[in-house]
């Protein structure tokens, strides 16, 4: 008797759980608003990448065209594949002292693995990750970028 009861309860439990699964997929089918796929090239204007997305390494500049890079070279030393190269120059400060500053912060996007060591280890937080991801170009030389903008200076107070 007990086994007969078990047989029928198994059938009912099975049917119930199967219908539960079908209810979930059915509700997705009839509610197209639950679709998560994005139509990429069409939604380019409204596309927002998430905060921690590693698109490319950038050097943020403020509105006075000043950056925070002191030219210390830690990022260059830390970079595992030689992506970063810093060309420094000597500038004379207001009080007549000579000081090291960057001439060019060269970043080779084509070699970068986006490990993030440069951004993490920068003592003055001069580097950051940008959200741009459409990097395809027809000439490899275009992937070599100079991160500091022309004419930019070291921000006051950053040593």
């Amino acid at each position: 008797m007990k086994s007969i009861l078990k047989y029928f309860s198994e059938i009912f439990y099975g049917v119930k759980s199967l219908l539960g699964g079908m209810r979930v997929t059915g509700s997705y089918f009839f509610r197209p608003s639950t679709i998560v796929t994005q139509k990429y090239p069409e939604n380019r204007d409204s596309l927002v990448m998430f905060d921690r997305f590693k698109g490319e390494v950038v050097m943020p500049h403020n509105e006075k065209n000043e950056h925070k890079c002191t030219g210390c070279g830690i990022c260059e030393i830390n970079c595992p594949n030689g992506t970063i190269e810093i060309i420094s120059k000597m500038v004379e400060t207001e009080d007549g002292k000579k000081k090291k500053a960057i001439d060019k912060h060269i970043y080779r996007l084509g070699m970068c693995t986006f490990c993030g060591l440069c951004v993490k280890t920068c003592p003055s937080n001069a580097l950051a990750f940008g959200q741009e991801f459409e990097h395809a170009v027809f000439d490899r030389s275009e992937l070599i970028k100079v991160l500091n903008q022309p004419g930019s200076q070291l921000e006051k107070g950053v040593e």
């Binding site: 059915g26 679709i35 998560v36 796929t37 139509k39």
Partner: peptide, 13 residues
């Protein structure tokens, strides 16, 4: 299309 909609996708478009 049916399979895509049930998996929250768009399917061929």
């Amino acid at each position: 299309k049916v399979c895509a909609f049930m998996q929250n996708r768009l399917g061929p478009n």
